[in-house]
Design a protein around this nucleic acid. Structure first.
Lengths: 142, 142
DNA sequence: CTAATCTCTCTAGGAACTAGAGCTTCAAGA
DNA sequence: TCTTGAAGCTCTAGTTCCTAGAGAGATTAG
């Protein structure tokens, strides 16, 4: 059994974040010492490792919650897990596509500016004022 | 002179967002009618278009604020604008690199799962439990 | 003049934490 | 055993960039 600080060190998840996850119901409420401090064991270490890894891969907490639910129900198939991962992959690809368009446009804007002149002649500012100067499409997110 | 709704329609920025920008000091407080409603003109239209475009390119409001400041000071050079845009570009490239690593890893995870078996044998869940199964690096965002 | 549509302010929520205040508990050394 | 300093506790508020809703007043078309 170890403390929240130790769990934090072993998983790389910050102490307040662990408490936050508990509050959100992502991890079960930990047992306490007589002095009201949380104590953890191997199970919680694994569970939090799972959450950490999924977060690193960009899964939102809601999705992680569903995955944890699934782990607890061995009677279901893993189709749901597969779907969640696929949705996450689609989301990542979508973001990449969008960021690449931004990269192109920003690259063009940065290249056009010497940084030497006065703001009135600044290519960066002019580009931002006039969407027609853009060569690629980039709408708002979503 | 036109209303906030009209400004919204013309710029694509939602009404509450315009009020929010005013509150944040990104746009000057608009003139009002006798009935206390905001009225806008050509200047505000341009200013908001600038903000909108910069937001579409992913600039945070703080950066946009700096760019607006710069526009108001013709005595300075546009070096600062150039730096801000460059920082934004770096940020975008950084995000792309990270997302590509995630794409690789998620693709591998999704491919490994048939969706048919029970959760105990699910490749998605197993991969998320065990970071060692990863072939690429992907830490947390910052 | 009335009805429908805006617009006003204010408050709260969302995602996923982070920071801080003020207090208690724990572990290790003297 | 006492003490000290680190670590833990709860609670609230702040972060970013908006979005949604309530309840009231303004404007405009017919």
């Amino acid at each position: 059994m170890f403390s929240i600080g130790e769990l934090s060190r072993r998983t790389g998840v910050k102490v307040p974040t662990i408490r936050y996850y508990e509050e959100m119901g992502l991890i079960a409420a930990a047992g306490r010492t007589s002095g009201n401090q949380r104590r953890y064991g191997r199970d919680e270490l694994e569970q939090l490792g799972f959450i950490r890894h999924a977060r690193d891969l960009g899964f939102p907490l809601g999705a992680i919650s569903s995955l944890i639910e699934l782990q607890r129900h061995p009677d279901r198939t893993c189709q749901e897990a597969s779907d969640i991962a696929q949705a996450q992959l689609d989301d990542v690809r979508h973001k990449i596509a969008r960021l690449k368009a931004l990269e192109t446009e920003l690259g063009r804007i940065v290249d056009g500016c010497s940084g030497k002149g006065p703001p009135q002649e600044c290519y960066v500012l002019a580009s931002l004022s006039d969407h027609d100067m853009c060569k690629t499409e980039h709408g708002p997110d979503h």
